[in-house]
Amino acid sequence: MRKDSRLSRVLHVLVHLDASDAPVTSDTMASMINTNPVVVRRTMGLMRDRGYVTSVKGHSGGWSLSKPLNEITLLDVHTALGENSVFTIGLTDEHTQCPIEHAVNAALKDVMNEAEALMLERFGEITLDILAVGFQRPDNAYTG
Rank of each mutant, 00 (worst) to 15 (best):
E121R: 13
V86K: 11
H95G: 04
T96E: 14
M119W: 04
K3Q: 13
S31V: 08
D4L: 03
V56E: 14
D27Y: 09
W63L: 04
N105V: 00
V53S: 06
E114T: 15
D129M: 00
G58F: 06
M1I: 06
E121D: 13
R48L: 02
H102K: 14
S60R: 13
T54Y: 02
V86P: 10
S60F: 00
L81G: 06
P138R: 09
E83R: 09
R6V: 02
R2E: 10
S8Q: 11
V13S: 12
L74S: 05
V104N: 10
L81Q: 05
L7Q: 06
M32S: 00
V53R: 00
Y52K: 02
M112E: 04
V39W: 03
D93E: 12
T43Q: 07
E83M: 14
S5P: 04
N140Y: 02
L81F: 04
Q136F: 10
A103R: 08
D4A: 08
P23V: 06
I33P: 02
L11T: 13
S64A: 14
H95F: 13
V104D: 09
S20D: 00
G144Q: 04
I130Q: 15
N113E: 14
A19G: 02
S20A: 13
T35K: 02
R50W: 00
L91C: 07
T79S: 15
S5R: 09
M47L: 11
N84I: 01
P68T: 06
D18E: 15
R48I: 04
S64T: 14
V77C: 03
N70Q: 10
L75I: 05
N84A: 14
E71V: 04
G90F: 07
P23I: 02
T43E: 15
I33S: 07
D27H: 11
V24A: 03
L11N: 11
A106K: 04
E101W: 01
N105A: 08
A106L: 09
R9L: 07
Q136E: 15
W63M: 01
C98M: 03
E94W: 02
N34L: 08
T79N: 12
N70K: 03
W63H: 10
K3E: 15
D139A: 14
T28S: 10
I130N: 10
A115T: 09
G134S: 07
M119K: 01
L14A: 04
E94Q: 14
G144N: 05
D21S: 15
P23M: 05
E101L: 05
L131V: 04
D129W: 01
Q97C: 06
V39T: 15
G90A: 12
A106W: 00
G90W: 07
V111D: 14
V77H: 00
S8H: 07
M112R: 14
G82E: 01
N34Q: 13
G124V: 07
T25F: 00
G82T: 03
V86A: 15
E125M: 11
M1T: 10
L108Q: 12
G62L: 06
E125A: 11
I126C: 07
T79H: 11
N34K: 12
D110F: 07
R48G: 08
E83D: 12
S60Q: 09
A141I: 05
G82C: 08
V104K: 02
A117I: 03
R6T: 09
